[in-house]
Amino acid sequence: MPKKEKKKDYAGVMPKKGWVKRNIHFFGRRIFVQVFKKRLGEAKHAVLDPPAEGIARITWIGHASFLLQFADHSVLIDPNWAHWHGFVKRQRNPGLGIKFLPHIDLVLVSHAHFDHLHKKSLKIVDSREGIIVPKGSRKLVERLGFHKVYEMAIWDDLKFDDLTITHTPAHHWGARYLHDTHRDYGGYIVKSGDLTIFHCGDSAYFEGFEEIGKRHHIDIALMPIGAYNAPSGRDVHMNPEEAIKAFLELGAEYLIPMHYRTFPLGNEPDNEPEERLVAEAKRLGLEDRVIVLDEGVGIELEGSYSSAGENI
């Protein structure tokens, strides 16, 4: 990782002052109580037929996992069907059954963290074009059954017929373990025809969102809004107000939230991210542009600043 980029956008791995107290709260108030709660929600069958030309069907599976369906392509991002990550219990079931997906053309993984690059889920998924990972993560996925593995550096492009993927920067870190800090991290621009979807990956707020928006017109931004009260105290995730600020700097038409509700990874209460997001959207008059999805329920949207606007 270049020194300049590391200084600017790398969150580091060392906790901040007060991390012991924050972790005691995290384990006592967040982790322990979740162990005894029933997991909510149920898996649905994906809609197998592709949407019409010029329309994207977006289905939130949970956490940062999305199924994107276009007329000619289906893309799966950060697929994760895990019920546990170590001692962290999944609070809501995946919205789609992993064995009832449409044919997948391409899989994207935003970074190497266990909740985004989940090997057991990736082993089950098949894709026609293979899998894309950030630079430095090839070895983590090359034995998972994909016939082709692509590594991307920031601002790299890959083209598959009329589907174009661009790897975008973020303020986060990509180490799967403490020592492998060489791994890259970021988000993706997914462009099919005139439709452009931005999956942010994991990121704190940083000045790079404006640059992403200058380079790409974005119809739909999939933005993380949870885990902002990190037990480590590090600046690694956005809060809901920062997510909306980033959304406006991107110049996107719609915001769909993610990275909340599924795994308790921060000290904020379960309902707080969504409540704060809705309140900030109302304060700024953006209610019609912020779309809160339920897991497994697809929404179809058109590009060019117009909406098909119907849940399916």
Rank of each mutant, 00 (worst) to 15 (best):
L106Q: 06
V13E: 14
T168K: 02
I154S: 00
N80F: 08
S121P: 03
V47A: 09
P257H: 08
D184L: 04
K16Q: 15
A227E: 05
K123L: 00
R128T: 13
V88Y: 03
V290Y: 07
R22I: 07
W155P: 01
G226N: 11
P51I: 03
W173D: 05
H217N: 12
H25W: 08
L68R: 04
A46T: 07
M14Y: 12
R276V: 07
E207Y: 08
V297T: 15
D72M: 01
V75E: 12
A246P: 01
H182M: 04
P169F: 00
G186P: 01
K214H: 11
L163T: 05
P269T: 07
E53A: 11
W19S: 14
V20M: 13
G136F: 04
Q91S: 13
V13C: 07
A252P: 00
A71C: 14
E274H: 09
L248M: 14
E151Q: 05
A46W: 04
P269K: 09
A52F: 05
M1R: 14
F206I: 04
A227I: 04
H103V: 12
H182A: 11
G174Y: 04
V109F: 05
G303W: 06
H103Y: 09
G187Y: 01
L265M: 14
A82C: 10
A43Q: 13
I124N: 03
K8M: 13
G233I: 09
D126R: 15
H182P: 01
D161I: 02
F36V: 01
V33S: 11
E151Y: 03
S65I: 01
L68V: 03
K89S: 12
V278M: 12
H179R: 13
G186M: 02
R215Y: 07
L122D: 03
G41P: 08
L195S: 05
N311H: 12
H147S: 15
D49M: 08
G251W: 10
P134G: 13
I299W: 10
T164P: 03
E272S: 11
Y305S: 14
L68T: 01
N311S: 12
R29F: 08
A281T: 10
P240I: 07
R234N: 13
P79Y: 01
E42V: 05
R289F: 10
L293W: 13
I132F: 06
P231H: 10
G303L: 06
V20C: 08
Y185N: 02
K6R: 15
I189Y: 04
D219T: 12
S74A: 15
D115R: 00
I299L: 14
H111L: 08
L40S: 11
Y228T: 09
I165F: 02
